[in-house]
C-alpha cells in the first residue's frame, strides 16, 4: 500500500475532526473531535516514519498520545466544573464573553 494512501486518509480524518469542532455545540463532542484531529496527525507521523524507516516518528506518536490524554483530562475537568455550577453546556450560549 503506497504511503500516499495513508496520508490522504489522515488528511480526511483531520478535516472531519475540524468540521466537528466547528459544527458541534456540546463541549464533550467538541473534545472528541479534537481527538480525531490529533489522531490524524499521529497517523501522518507514522506514515512518514514508515516511509523514512526512522523510528523517531513512532516515539513522537507515543508522546502525542500522552499529550492528547492530558488535554482531555483538563477539558473534561472544566466541563464537569461547569456542570456542577449548573451552567449551560452549550458553546453557542457562551456569549457572555463576546463583546
Amino acid at each position: 500500500m503506497d504511503i500516499e494512501w495513508y496520508l490522504v486518509l489522515s488528511a480526511l480524518l483531520f478535516t472531519i475532526g475540524f468540521t466537528g469542532v466547528l459544527i458541534r455545540r456540546n463541549p464533550v463532542v467538541i473534545l472528541l473531535c479534537l481527538e480525531l484531529m490529533l489522531s490524524a496527525g499521529a497517523l501522518a507521523m507514522l506514515a512518514f516514519s514508515r516511509m523514512l524507516g526512522d523510528q523517531d516518528g513512532q516515539v513522537m506518536v507515543l508522546i502525542v498520545l500522552v499529550v492528547a490524554a492530558c488535554e482531555v483530562v483538563v477539558g473534561l475537568g472544566i466541563v464537569v466544573a461547569m456542570f456542577r455550577r449548573r451552567l449551560p453546556l452549550d458553546v453557542d450560549d457562551m456569549k457572555e464573553l463576546k463583546g
Binding site: 463541549p27 490529533l38 501522518a44 507521523m45 512518514f48 477539558g75 472544566i78 466541563v79 455550577r85 464573553l97
Partner: peptide, 29 residues
C-alpha cells in the same frame, strides 16, 4: 466567565496544537 474562558482557550488552543502537529509531521516527512 472564568470557566468559559478556560474551555474556550482549551478548545481553540488545542485546534492550534493539532494543526501544529500535522504541520510538524509534514516537515518531518
Amino acid at each position: 466567565d472564568s470557566l468559559e474562558s478556560g474551555l474556550k482557550y482549551l478548545i481553540i488552543g488545542s485546534v492550534g496544537s493539532a494543526t501544529l502537529l500535522y504541520g510538524l509531521a509534514l516537515i518531518y516527512g
